[in-house]
Design a protein around this nucleic acid. Structure first.
Length: 508
RNA sequence: UCCCCGGUAGCUCAAUGGUGGAGCGGCUGGCUGUUAACCAGUAGGUUGCAGGUUCGAGUCCUGCCCGGGGAGCCA
C-alpha cells in the first residue's frame, strides 16, 4: 500500500493509497460518514460507506472527533465538486491519537479567542493558506535577489545604538551593557554593500511602540537590500521590478491558496502588468488635499462618495438584520431556518460594526486630508486617501528631509527634500516599502547626527564608510508581513505570521 | 500616552431598570452522497473586577483590568 500526500492525489486517481492526517470535519448519516481530512499538504473528503468498510470501521468513523489523528486507506476518486478535485473512498481506517473537545469549531470565533488558540488556529484552512503564501513569498524574494547577483548577509539583532534615533526600542542586557533589539539592519547593510556590491538582509526586526493597529507588530520580518552605485532612480526601478516579479511568482504558485482566501487578484495583477505610479511628495500632498485631481478624481470628493456608499450599505445591512430577526420570530418557522438566520445575523452584526467603524473614521480622514500641512509625514489615513485614487502601487519620493532618517541623501536641486521613497500598496494597505538613496557626504552626515542629538561615538564605524571610498548607494526595507497582508487581502497583519508578537500579546 | 467601541453559557450573540435567553458546540436518539448537513430531546451561568445609586442593576454612575479600532510612531 503506497503512502501518499493529499497534494499528490492527481497521480493516483483510481488507485488504492494510504494517507496520514487529522480529521477537520465530519458529517454523518446512517450508512455513510464524510470526513474532511488534512495531512499538512492539503484537505480532502474521505467517504466512509458502511457497506464497504464493514460495521467495525464504520462505527469508528462515526465517532471520530475533530482533530483526531488517523491513518486511512482508500481509493482516490476524481470528483470536481470536492475540495482539491478528489476524494478518498475509504476501505480501512485506524485512529492514531484521539482528540477531544477541540476548541476551534467550524463556526465563527472572535479574533481574541482565535489568537489565544493560535497554536491550533494555524491548522485551519485559511491560516494554512496564508502560511503557504508567506512561504512562497519568502522563496520568491530569495529567488529574485539570488538571480540578480545579490548576496544575503544578515545584520546583527543585538545593537548598541538606536539606529535612526527615532523609534522606541526594546532594551536588553548584553553582558552588563545596555543593548537594543534591532529596529533595522540598514546601517550594517550599507557596510556590507561596500564589500559585496549588492546585498540583502532578511531577518526579524523589533519595534517597542505601543501601537494597536492592523498594520503593526512588535516583532516582524524585514528584507533590506542595499546596493552600491545605485541612485534613487535605480532604487525605484529595482523596487518596481522586484515587486512585480515576486507578486507574479506568488500569483502563479499560490493560485489555489488565494482562492481559499477568496482574494480578488485584480489589483495584484495590475501591480504585475501596469507601471507603478510615481510622484514626488509635493505632488502627493496636493492630491491628498484635493488640490490636484487624478484621472478626474478628487481625493476629498472620492472620500465623501465612499462615505455615502458606506452609509447606504450600513442601512441595507441594518434592514437585512431587522428582516431576518422578524423571520425568526414568526410562528411555524422551522428550527433549521431560525438557526440559519441566527448565524447570518451574527455575521451581519460583525460586518455592521466594521462598516460603522470605517464610517466613523472617514470624516476624520477628510478633515486630516484637507488640513494636511506640507512638510509632515503621512499618517495611515493620508496613505489611504492617496492610494484610494489608484489601482496600482504608488511610489512617493523626495520627502521633506526632517521627516526622514539622518542617513537619507539630501536632494541636490532642492535641499528641503531628501531622496527617500515610500511604496504604498493600493486597497488601503498603505506603506509596505520604505527606502532611498543614502547620504554620501561625510560632513552633511555628521551635521545630521548632531542635529538629531545622536551619540557620534556610536556612529564612527558608519562614518568610516564615507571616509574610505564613499559612493552613491541606495536600498530599501520591505515589511514581509505587510506584503503578505496585501497579497492575501487580509484585514490585519497578525494573521500573516505564525505567532504574532504585538502590544498585549506574548502568548502563545 | 490620548480618543472611540466592547466584555453575558465552551463559542457567536440577544435581553424599554423588573423571573438571565437563542443558535452553535457537548451528550442521547432519529433521518439523509453530505458540503458551516438536518430533526427531536438534554446538560450547561458569581453577566470582566471593585464600589456606588435604587424597593430592585447584565442594564445607570465612578475606578480598575482585559480586548478591538484609531491617533502618535512606523515596515
Amino acid at each position: 500500500m503506497e503512502e501518499v500526500f493529499i497534494s499528490g492525489f492527481d497521480k493516483f486517481n483510481g488507485k488504492e493509497v494510504a494517507i496520514k492526517g487529522w480529521v477537520t470535519n465530519r458529517r454523518e448519516s446512517k450508512t455513510i460518514v464524510f470526513l474532511i481530512v488534512r495531512d499538512g499538504t492539503g484537505f480532502t473528503q474521505c467517504v466512509v460507506a458502511q457497506e464497504k468498510t464493514g460495521d467495525e470501521i464504520f462505527s469508528i468513523a462515526r465517532q471520530l472527533s475533530l482533530e483526531t489523528a488517523v491513518v486511512i486507506e482508500g481509493v482516490v476518486n476524481r470528483d470536481e465538486k470536492q475540495i482539491g478535485g478528489f476524494e478518498l473512498l475509504v476501505s480501512r481506517l485506524a485512529v492514531l491519537s484521539q482528540s477531544e473537545n477541540y476548541p476551534i469549531s467550524n463556526k465563527p470565533h472572535g479574533t481574541d479567542y482565535l489568537m489565544d488558540n493560535r497554536h491550533l488556529w494555524l491548522r485551519s484552512r485559511r491560516q494554512w493558506a496564508i502560511m503557504r503564501v508567506r512561504n512562497q513569498l519568502i522563496q520568491a524574494i530569495h529567488r529574485y535577489f539570488q538571480k540578480n547577483g545579490f548576496i544575503q548577509m544578515d545584520a546583527p539583532i543585538f545593537t548598541g545604538n538606536a539606529c535612526e534615533g527615532t523609534s522606541t526600542l526594546f532594551g536588553t542586557d548584553f553582558f552588563g551593557q545596555p543593548a537594543y533589539l534591532s529596529q533595522s539592519g540598514q546601517l550594517y547593510g550599507e557596510s556590507m554593500a561596500f564589500a559585496h556590491g549588492k546585498i540583502y538582509t532578511f531577518g526579524p526586526t523589533f519595534r517597542a511602540e505601543k501601537s494597536k493597529t492592523r498594520r503593526h507588530l512588535s516583532e516582524f520580518w524585514m528584507i533590506e537590500p542595499e546596493m552600491a552605485f545605485y541612485t534613487l532612480e535605480d532604487d525605484m526601478e529595482l523596487i518596481e521590478d522586484f515587486m512585480k516579479n515576486v507578486v507574479k511568482d506568488v500569483l502563479t504558485q499560490c493560485a489555489s491558496e488565494l482562492k481559499i482566501l477568496e482574494r480578488d487578484t485584480a489589483y495584484l495583477e495590475n501591480g504585475v502588468n501596469k507601471p507603478f505610479c510615481r510622484m514626488t511628495y509635493s505632488e502627493a500632498v496636493k492630491i491628498i488635499r484635493g488640490e490636484k485631481e487624478v484621472n478626474g478624481k478628487n481625493s476629498i470628493n472620492t472620500l465623501e462618495n465612499d462615505l455615502k456608499e458606506l452609509q447606504e450599505k450600513i442601512r441595507k445591512v441594518q434592514e437585512e438584520i431587522a428582516e431576518r430577526t422578524n423571520k425568526t420570530k414568526q410562528s411555524g418557522v422551522k428550527q433549521g431556518e431560525i438557526s440559519f438566520h441566527k448565524s447570518k445575523i451574527d455575521a451581519l452584526t460583525g460586518e455592521l460594526h466594521e462598516l460603522e467603524e470605517t464610517a466613523k473614521n472617514i470624516p476624520q480622514w477628510i478633515e486630516s486630508a484637507k488640513n494636511f500641512k506640507e512638510g509632515g509625514d503621512f499618517g495611515g489615513s493620508d496613505e489611504t486617501v492617496l492610494t484610494r485614487l489608484f489601482d496600482v502601487p504608488v511610489m512617493v519620493f523626495n520627502w521633506p528631509h526632517e521627516v526622514k532618517a539622518f542617513y537619507m541623501k539630501r536632494d541636490e536641486k532642492d535641499s528641503r527634500y531628501a531622496r527617500g521613497v515610500d511604496v504604498l500598496a493600493p486597497e488601503g494597505f498603505g506603506e509596505i516599502v520604505g527606502g532611498g538613496e543614502r547620504e554620501t557626504d561625510l560632513n552633511l552626515l555628521i551635521g545630521k547626527i548632531r542635529e538629531n542629538e545622536l551619540p557620534m561615538k556610536e556612529f564612527e564605524w558608519y562614518l568610516d564608510l564615507r571616509r574610505y571610498g564613499s559612493v552613491p548607494h541606495s536600498g530599501f526595507g520591505l515589511g514581509l508581513e505587510r506584503f503578505v497582508a496585501w497579497i492575501c487581502g487580509l484585514h490585519h497583519v497578525r494573521e500573516t505570521i505564525p505567532f504574532p508578537r504585538m502590544y498585549g500579546r506574548l502568548f502563545p
